[in-house]
Design a protein around this nucleic acid. Structure first.
Ligand SMILES: Nc1ccn([C@H]2C[C@H](O)[C@@H](COP(=O)(O)OP(=O)(O)OP(=O)(O)O)O2)c(=O)n1
Ligand SMILES: [Mg+2]
Ligand SMILES: [Mg+2]
Length: 834
DNA sequence: ACGGATGGCACT
DNA sequence: TAGTGCCAT
């Protein structure tokens, strides 16, 4: 398997560097970036290296920093709409990624200032240029090593050290992270949020409305930019809130389809998703329990063909292509039957047509109905059906609600094609016909109008809608053809699906509760949407009402607020993992994708080529083009990792597998546990270099390589003893998992050439790594004319480890569990005591 | 009340 | 799945 060369790049004190561009005077002097400076000088989120020298750290208050470093320059994070605005840094982060794109086409955005870069291809190319010749340090004159100052004097020394360091890092990282780089430069979600602490907690409907709107404004703005820049659209909106009473808190999140990026509509959706959390009586302008956090996030992006770039022909072509694809993928679960705003009408990926096989006809009509009334309906009802076919469509069309459905829905016979897409078009056509005049007027009588200030977007939307009416007929006819070819079952959602968990006494009770305040100020909304609210709340409140109510009913007055938890939110559907589509493209570059979509799309993927990684024809591998071969190899690694993990789990040995930063996390309890046996100093550390390698250290040992070869993966287990103390273990497990052993078990121990200690064969490789690290660390320090610290490299390694420990904002699950007051323990009490 | 804003992911 | 929780920067 090809050895990979992967780099993790992380920018130095990133926000500070960004601010340096706007405030050149902070260059070279102690500086930090703070946000919200009103309280204790604000919270520090980035510190430059000069200030670090004074002991200033992230998380400190501005005042604290000034105490440590009186001359520190504090720059504030920009504020817009009353909240911190990180746009500047996001954009700068994007700049960095763009630079990296010049060097490699496989880049994974790991954070705002970090990226993984797969240099395998680049390096291979370079090596070819050397044509087998040895690479001397002179060839690496511009190469840097962390911690070195590149003076001319030190250059040569540095490059020697580079080779050493490379060796060191190489071995340190050996086996600890074989995760492939997944090419993805864009975030998968775009969100914003704000905390409202103490006195600032949102305790009135008006405040909630105001902040929801502010967040929606920001989100909308960022989504618009994202859409034009990245040709994609988010399909879901998720709102999360934290509710607080004196004694308890709970947080919850709810999602719905995101048919429009308009801030007003996002606001309405957001409000409607959390409205049921307000337990204040309908006419009470208050909001209880108070809201301490609101977050809005948009996700589930899908490609978007801009109106200008895309034409109708492209759409047909795509449809044809996707049709052939979907015939193979039987189990697609995504679905978009929402009525998006007009501006993205070109975005309907024909692949969404396949939703028709999963959505009942009534469901289709239902969602149209809700969409056609968007301006009213959305006010209260975030139609889940726009992207998730689990909506309880019967509820909306139930007998007692049909009367409220506008005439359009009565045409459901006409619009009962099996094809969702066709239905959509028919419906849309009908919609345009019907709403030819007083569409915007319709909303004026709505009592909730006071909450949702209109702009004139509806008007323009409508105008635009009329403009492409002609295309609709064309599309419908196209779908007709498609439909006749494609005989998919058009099963309705089963009755059990619809009813499950809805009709119990709790739900009924909640229903009446929420029914009283269908909109923010407790006014009665139009009946049609009111009905829909009920349906949604039935489902939501099944879980939420108890949680919310219990925020008021603290039993132990002296205790700090406790989280309120409920059990599992419902029985998960059966997942068919095998049929899950591959989400990530691990080889192709996202940017390239935009540049030349056709090429990318026509290329066969690794998954298609080797659908079964357990049984594939290895001989094919060398025959593949390099790109594809690498992709396949990455998939194989992933597959293998997965299997190993599963296997280890079965053995109940592997609780946590460490890996690269930001990719996997290790509970801090394990990471920082000083009880972790120091056999393997880097055991719990994240490593900089990924990729399998030969164990170059084996020649230090009198053991044959075969015998001690291991996967070098680190495992940790977390146990508790009778006193509740944590006991963590670190070690290796080998290819043959049955050989897992603790050093104390002393099966097959050998003597270490370096220190003479007895050590198990399994632990030897990493033990030897430790000696290498020790030596190199000492060398480096000597070369840098640093007086060696007292103690050894081992001490240094351990010290680093400690300093990397994350400060925790709250007790972890494990800790709570160990303390005997985890959420699970208190759950029942909290729930049922009133 | 005081670590805020953001993003990804494992788990169920 | 959607929702929760945790962990990361
Ligand atoms: N808890 C955190 C951690 C980081 N960041 C932001 C500010 C940082 O500048 C940026 C990058 O985080 P890093 O952890 O990479 O820290 P720095 O880049 O600031 O410093 P370093 O030079 O150590 O990477 O992310 C943040 O807002 N909150
Ligand atoms: Mg950084
Ligand atoms: Mg970083």
């Amino acid at each position: 398997m090809t050895e990979r060369v992967v780099v993790l790049l992380d920018m130095d004190c990133f926000y500070v560097q960004v601010e340096e561009r706007d405030h050149p005077h902070i260059k070279g002097v102690p500086a930090a970036v703070v946000q919200y400076n009103t309280w204790k000088g604000g919270g520090i989120i980035a510190v430059n290296y000069e200030a670090r020298g004074f002991g200033v750290k992230r998380g400190m208050r501005g005042d604290e920093a000034r105490a440590k470093c009186p001359n520190i320059q504090l720059v504030q994070v920009p504020v817009s709409r009353g909240k911190a605005d990180l746009t500047k840094y996001r954009n700068a982060g994007k700049e960095v990624i763009n630079v990296l794109c010049d060097f490699s086409d496989c880049i994974e955005r790991a954070s705002i200032d970090e990226a993984y870069i797969d240099f395998t291809n680049v390096i291979e190319q370079k090596l070819k240029e050397f044509d087998g010749n040895k690479i001397s340090p002179e060839n690496l004159m511009s190469t840097w090593v962390v911690g070195y100052d590149k003076t001319e004097e030190e250059d040569k020394q540095m490059n020697k050290d580079l080779l050493s360091c490379r060796f060191w890092l190489h071995n340190l990282g050996k086996g600890s992270d074989s995760e492939p780089v997944t090419s993805r430069q864009l975030p998968k979600s775009i969100g914003c949020g704000k905390n409202f602490q103490g006195k600032e907690a949102l305790n009135t409907r008006e405040k909630v409305q105001k902040w929801m709107r502010s967040l929606a404004d920001e989100l909308s703005e960022r989504l618009d930019i994202d859409q034009s820049a990245n040709k994609r659209r988010a399909k879901t909106l998720t709102v999360s809130v934290r509710l607080d009473s004196d004694e308890r808190w709970c947080s919850l999140s709810r999602s719905c389809g995101l048919p429009s990026y308009s801030a007003e509509r996002i606001t309405r959706l957001g409000i409607s998703l959390i409205q049921h959390t307000n337990q204040a009586s309908p006419r009470d302008p208050g909001w209880t329990p108070v809201i301490k956090h609101i977050g809005l996030s948009a996700g589930k992006f899908e490609d978007w063909e801009g109106a200008s770039s895309g034409n109708i022909q492209d759409m047909f072509k795509k449809a044809a292509m996707n049709k052939s694809l979907r015939d193979e993928k039987l189990n697609s679960s995504t679905c978009n039957d929402g009525m998006p705003e007009h501006s993205d009408s070109g975005s309907f990926k024909p692949v969404t047509v396949e939703c028709s096989s999963k959505i009942s006809e009534t469901s289709v009509c239902t969602s149209y109905k809700s969409c056609e009334n968007t301006d009213k309906m959305e006010n209260d009802v975030p139609s889940r059906s726009s992207w998730n076919n689990k909506i309880n469509e019967q509820s909306v069309l139930s007998p007692d609600s049909t009367e409220h459905i506008p005439e359009v829905t009565k045409d459901s016979h006409e619009i009962s094609s099996k094809s969702f897409f066709k239905n959509f078009l028919l419906r849309k056509k009908k919609y345009i016909e019907i709403n030819s005049t007083d569409f915007t007027r319709e909303r004026d009588g709505d009592e909730s109008e006071i909450l949702y200030n209109d702009d004139n977007s509806e008007k323009t939307q409508k105008e635009a809608e009329n403009s492409d009416e002609n295309d609709l007929d064309l599309l419908v006819s196209f779908i007709d053809e498609e439909e006749s070819e494609c005989s998919r079952s058009s099963e309705s959602v089963t009755a059990s699906d619809k009813k499950s968990g809805v009709k119990d006494s709790t739900a009924t009770q909640d229903k009446s509760v929420v029914c009283e305040s269908p909109d923010l100020f407790g006014s009665q909304d139009s009946e049609g949407s009111g009905k829909m609210i009920l349906e949604d709340k039935d489902r939501i409140n099944k879980n939420d009402s108890e949680k919310i109510r219990s925020t008021h009913k603290g039993e132990n007055q002296n205790e700090k607020p406790k989280p309120i938890s409920d059990g599992p939110t419902g029985s998960p559907l059966e997942n068919n993992l095998l049929e899950k589509p591959v989400e990530n493209n691990t080889t192709s570059c996202g940017q390239e994708l935009h540049k030349d979509k056709n090429v990318q799309n026509s290329k066969i993927s690794a998954k298609e080529l080797f659908p079964n990684l357990d049984n594939y024809d290895e001989s094919l591998l060398p025959l593949l083009p390099q790109d594809l071969r690498l992709e396949v190899e990455r998939e194989l690694i992933k597959h293998k990792n997965k299997q190993e993990k599963q296997f280890a789990k079965k053995l109940e040995i592997l609780k946590y597998v460490n890996g690269s930063p930001s990719k996997r996390h290790i509970p801090t309890e394990v990471k920082n546990d000083s009880n972790c046996k120091p056999i393997n100093p880097q055991c719990s550390e994240a490593h900089a270099v990924a990729g399998p390698s030969n164990n170059a250290l084996l020649n230090h040992s009198n053991i044959s390589s075969k015998k001690i070869e291991s996967k070098q993966m680190c495992y940790s287990t977390l146990d508790e003893d009778t006193t509740g103390n944590k006991i963590a273990e670190c070690g290796n497990f080998g290819e043959n998992k049955s050989n897992i052993t603790d050093s104390s078990d002393n099966i097959d121990t050998v003597e270490c050439d370096e220190c003479g200690c007895q050590i198990s064969a399994f632990e030897l490789p990493e033990h030897l790594d430790y000696h290498v690290a020790l030596k190199l660390q000492t060398d480096i320090q000597r070369d840098m004319n640093i007086v060696p610290k007292q103690g050894t490299a081992k001490a240094i390694v351990m010290e680093n480890k400690k300093s990397k420990g994350k400060k925790r904002g709250r007790t972890s699950k494990a800790e709570k569990y160990l303390e005997g007051k985890g959420k699970k323990n208190q759950k029942l009490d909290v729930f049922f005591k009133r």
